[in-house]
Design a protein around this nucleic acid. Structure first.
Length: 208
DNA sequence: TGCCAGGCCCTCTTTAGGGCCTT
């Protein structure tokens, strides 16, 4: 089955860093990119069934009072599954968000058909001179306008989406690639840093 | 109650260790 020509950029806020140790999602934010344009948005708080720590309240700005009236994780994740459809997926440090997505969907016996890309791995290769590769640093590095609160799911997803478009435009501008594919970007994310120039030049040389 | 991860990537590497990144 061919996947849709769309990309879902997502970000979780969670009770901690390890779903294997019982941590749960408390917010999901996502945007849909179609043909280089943000065409849809999704944001929901979800009640994990227990109180969150003062650290997480401070880190995210999401409070126990806000979560008290939120729907449960199962209801929200089922709705999010419909939003994903058959799109491919993207997150900044995707290993983290993928673990939580897989854990939450496993609890409701749902799956997604798309592949997961990581803007962190790609940015480390394309923006090697950046001070570091945290999302906020890369947004500044790319001169992307930024008016909102980091560590809220929808805002981080929107910033990741804009970073992704900046990565694509940088690659296309510097290497003369007019339409790099999702699969080619996935290969780029696995290419050794020192070979990035050679890899992209080879793509440009063989471009349709 | 209190505790906690894991994949990537560099190098003083590969028979390993530690920083980065996410909440």
């Amino acid at each position: 089955m061919a996947l849709a020509n769309s990309l879902i950029v997502l970000d979780f806020e969670t009770t901690g860093i390890s779903p294997d140790m019982g941590d749960r999602a408390i917010e999901i934010g996502a945007v849909k990119i179609e043909n280089g344009v943000l065409t849809d948005r999704f944001q929901r708080l979800m009640n994990p069934g227990r109180r969150i720590s003062p650290f997480i309240e401070s880190y995210t700005g999401i409070t126990n009072a806000m979560l008290k009236s939120a729907p449960g994780n199962a209801e929200v994740m089922a709705e999010f599954c419909e939003f994903i459809g058959d799109s491919n997926l993207l997150a900044h440090n995707a290993a983290f968000d993928k673990r939580f997505l897989d854990a939450e969907l496993s609890k409701i016996k749902r799956r997604y058909p798309g592949n997961f890309a990581c803007s962190l791995l790609v940015a480390r290769r394309v923006f090697q001179s950046a001070e570091n590769h945290k999302l906020g640093t890369l947004i500044n590095h790319c001169n992307i306008s930024c008016d909102g609160n980091f560590h809220r799911a929808l805002f981080d997803a929107e910033m990741t989406a804009k970073l992704w478009l900046s990565i694509l435009s940088t690659v296309e501008r510097e290497y003369g690639l007019s339409n790099i594919s999702f699969n080619e970007i996935q290969k780029l994310a696995k290419t050794p840093k020192k070979s990035i120039g050679k890899f992209l030049s080879s793509l440009a040389a063989t471009e349709r």
